[in-house]
Amino acid sequence: MDVTHILFGVFAVMAVVSAILMVTTRNIVHCAVFLITTLLATAGVFLLLQAEFLFVTQIILYVGGIMVLFVFVIMLVNLDVSLRQVQFNRQTWVAVLLAAVLGAQLFIALWLGRNALRLPARAELIAPKNTEAIGQVLFQRYMLPFEIASILLLVAMIGAVVMAKRRV
């Protein structure tokens, strides 16, 4: 029971509790704040996994970029009307049941395959220079997917502008 266990417990409980609150809260602005809390806790988990580059990327891109976009759209659609409406649809209990079955299946798969996770620790391969290692692999082995991702971002940018324009 060292400090990483305690930190992992704190981050995991924070992530799961605020995720549950995000799904169940009535006010959509509170939903966004709880999702931000979940994403920050996940960033802490990334840091525990020694993925420092993704820790920073998660905070800058998710919390600083995507969630700001969400909050802007929440402000643009009217808030007061949607507060008084019913928040859950009619098939709620069927949906919760199906999701629980899906979770149980994944848990059983994880339980059956738990022996495959017993590998000798090879942490020293990625531990010291995480960003440098990511940069080298990204620009050598994954060069083509990287360029395709940039084209995807360009297309998404144009699509968002066209969608949000007033008269098409």
Binding site: V16, V23, Q85, Q87, N89, A95, A100
Partner: peptide
């Protein structure tokens, strides 16, 4: 699983 529940149950 929580995310799947959110997608399937919320109206917004």
């Amino acid at each position: 699983t929580i995310g799947v529940i959110g997608v399937l149950t919320r109206r917004n």
